[in-house]
């Protein structure tokens, strides 16, 4: 554990909580891509199956459980509780365009051809592109509310901090995981355009 890893995790947690609270407080999920949220729920489910097989630390287990719980709670709010406010017409990105190629890649490029390892690899690759339906939706509607941009900022910041974490771990622990690093770089790059808008326009984004 280093400072980048910890702040990265907390930034990720902040993003998830911000989104959940936004939907809960406004009683609306307008402008939020349900598809990105389904993909994130799938990411956490396939990655954290190791909750059943190995114990790393109380911190690790707690965070995993919180991430999974929040991901499903968000999907529930969007598709069940506040379904009437869900903007399905603008959330038109096809999930299979991401899930199928990512699944194929996970089978081809992985550390070990075993069930759990392939699901872990799948989750890493899928996470790197899971935000695309959300970004696509913003480009389609041409705007994003302030609180949605805060959500995206923290989500992007989390991955950027993880990149520093991996540099740290490489120098001080000799640890590096090429799959996580490359996918993490792709994921961070996807947010660059958004970061630029967030910094220059500050609040709600209008394209």
């Amino acid at each position: 554990m280093n400072i980048f890893r910890l702040t990265g995790d907390l930034s990720h947690l902040a993003a998830i909580i911000i989104l959940l609270l936004k939907i809960w407080k406004t009683r609306s999920c307008a402008g939020i891509s349900g598809k990105s949220q389904i993909l994130f729920a799938l990411v956490f489910t396939t990655r954290y199956l190791d909750l059943l097989t190995s114990f790393i630390s109380l911190y690790n287990t707690t965070m995993k459980v919180i991430y999974i719980g929040c991901a499903y709670a968000t999907v529930y709010l969007i598709y069940m509780k506040f379904k009437a406010t869900y903007d399905g017409n603008h959330d038109s990105f096809r999930m299979e365009f991401l899930v199928v190629p990512v699944g194929g890649l996970a089978c081809l490029v992985n550390h070990d051809f075993s069930f759990l390892e392939i699901l872990w690899t799948f989750s890493i690759y899928l996470e790197s592109v899971a935000i695309l339906p959300q970004l696509f939706m913003i480009s389609k509607t041409g705007e994003a509310e302030t609180i949605t941009t805060h959500y995206l900022f923290f989500l992007g910041l989390y991955r950027a901090l993880y990149l520093f974490n991996w540099i740290w771990r490489f120098y001080f622990e000799g640890f590096f995981d090429m799959i996580a690093i490359v996918a993490g770089m792709v994921q961070t790059i996807l947010y660059c355009d958004f970061f630029y808008l967030y910094v220059t326009k500050g609040q709600g984004i209008s394209l």
Binding site: I56, Y67, A180
Partner: peptide, 10 residues
Amino acid sequence: KRDETPHDEL
């Protein structure tokens, strides 16, 4: 083949 160390990152 990967060693048996579990993935420790989130």
